[in-house]
């Protein structure tokens, strides 16, 4: 049974309110996902690629339970992300692109303890899980530091630890390595791969970095304007990806 199951998922954003509605001039909804379907098996790492506005973040937010789809369905670990909320959120670990959310005045350990409690871990479980993950993800030296003193790369590492604290069955990452230098990005992506291999979680990560995709994804979903235009191993998707990325951006 797949750990992530997406069937004909559609999402249109309603147009923002305008006084022009009063004279009957209403903009059309903006289509972000136009019938997306694919599965991810337990322990599988799937990359989500596509140009800006392809619908990657929309898809990740729907799976996280932060956005309602217009139609279709999505299940994580057998739970429907709409019907089974908020239970479905308990099996998902997410690090989204605009994900800040760490209290800058607290230490990393204090922040992680808070998020562990948010996901129902006892203090003892939180402490042991934090120690384990910090050791494996090279974040041990960061634990007693205040978040405001961390670099971007260190924050990304902490956000990854936070997403993994409650042992999620599905891990969603939105351009986690975007702001990192190449060396830090390589280390972090290697650690994600190792962590996933150990935990058996299904991973869906959005990225613009094709070398990252090639390095850790077993399959790749290529999205363009809300459509899945290719899905398969990196080498089979790459020619189509080159075409999509070479196209000029739509006005």
């Amino acid at each position: 049974m797949p750990e992530v199951e997406i069937r004909n998922l559609k999402k249109s954003y309603p147009p923002p309110f305008s006084w022009r509605w009063l004279v009957g001039k209403r903009e059309a909804p903006r289509e972000a996902l136009a019938g997306v379907s694919f599965d991810i098996a337990p322990g599988e790492v799937v990359a989500l690629i596509g140009p800006n506005g392809a619908g990657k973040s929309t898809l990740l937010r729907i799976l996280t339970g932060l956005l309602l789809p217009s139609s279709g369905s999505a299940r994580v670990a057998g739970l429907d992300v709409v019907e089974d909320r908020p239970r479905s959120r308990a099996v998902v670990g997410a690090a989204l692109s605009e994900d800040r959310g760490l209290s800058s005045r607290l230490t990393v350990r204090q922040n992680l303890a808070f998020y562990a409690a948010l996901f129902g871990l006892s203090q003892r479980e939180a402490a042991s899980r934090t120690a384990e993950l910090a050791e494996r993800l090279e974040a041990k030296a960061l634990l007693e530091r205040r978040v405001r003193t961390l670099s971007t790369g260190e924050k990304a590492r902490v956000i990854l630890v936070r997403a993994l604290l409650h042992q999620p069955r599905v891990l969603l990452l939105d351009e986690l390595t975007r702001s990192l230098d190449p060396g830090a990005a390589v280390r972090l992506r290697r650690q994600v791969a190792q962590e996933v291999a150990g935990s058996g979680a299904a991973v869906l990560f959005a990225s613009h970095d094709l070398s990252e995709v090639e390095a850790i994804a077993s399959r790749v979903v290529l999205l363009d304007r809300g459509h899945v235009v290719a899905f398969g191993p990196y080498q089979s998707v790459k020619p189509r990806a080159d075409e999509v990325f070479a196209k000029p951006a739509e006005a």
């Binding site: 308990a90 997410a94 605009e98 959310g101 996901f119």
Partner: peptide, 14 residues
């Protein structure tokens, strides 16, 4: 404004 709302509402609570 500090960006934590999304993370908080992604937790399994109402």
């Amino acid at each position: 404004t500090d960006g934590s709302l999304e993370v908080l509402l992604a937790a399994p609570h109402s």
